[in-house]
């Protein structure tokens, strides 16, 4: 018997196991929360060394990014991420992982065309649209200010 694409879509939906949402959310909450708490501790540490608010925030980002890159190199980040999902994806550490992992993996195509050229295959859009949106915001501010 021939089934239509619509009937088949229905069949597929019934047979495909959905992701375990509740379990995934608990993991994401716990790990994401833990990374943010660690970030808070690092922020407080940098403030204690005498950095001002802004510099301490930058230093915290740099520290977390360095830690995540190290964990990526040690192949631990992906092991945590398998369970944590958004918990490791959404914090700035996920940004670092998305830069370090293609850099490492595409080393086989050379340090120029592999590592360097592929470094922002995943994270590139974040910068493009993040910076793009901030410039739009700035231009709006300029015109509102005038």
């Amino acid at each position: 018997m021939d089934v239509t694409p619509q009937e088949y879509e229905q069949m597929v939906r019934e047979q495909s196991k959905p992701s375990p949402l509740l379990r995934d959310m608990v993991w994401a909450f716990a790990v994401g929360g833990a990374i943010c708490t660690l970030g808070q501790a690092i922020l407080d540490f940098w403030k204690k060394t005498g950095l001002n608010e802004k510099d301490a925030a930058s230093a915290t980002s740099i520290t977390l990014i360095g830690l995540a890159a190290l964990l990526t190199g040690l192949h631990l980040y992906e092991k945590i991420a398998k369970h944590a999902g958004a918990g490791t994806l959404v914090p700035i550490t996920g940004f670092s992982n998305s830069v370090a992992s293609p850099a490492l993996e595409f080393k086989s195509e050379g340090l120029i065309l592999g590592t360097a050229a592929k470094m922002f295959t995943i994270a590139g859009p974040v910068l493009v649209y993040g910076i793009g949106a901030s410039i739009v915001y700035g231009v709006i501010l300029v015109f509102l200010g005038v």
């Binding site: 495909s16 196991k17 959905p18 992701s19 375990p20 995934d24 990526t72 190199g73 192949h75 980040y77 992906e78 945590i80 991420a81 398998k82 944590a84 999902g85 490791t88 994806l89 996920g94 992982n97 998305s98 370090a100 992992s101 293609p102 490492l104 993996e105 595409f106 995943i122």
Partner: peptide, 13 residues
């Protein structure tokens, strides 16, 4: 898909 060291989650399917 993605680099192996990238922390993505695989769906059950």
């Amino acid at each position: 898909r993605f680099p192996l060291a990238y922390g993505g989650q695989r769906t059950p399917t």
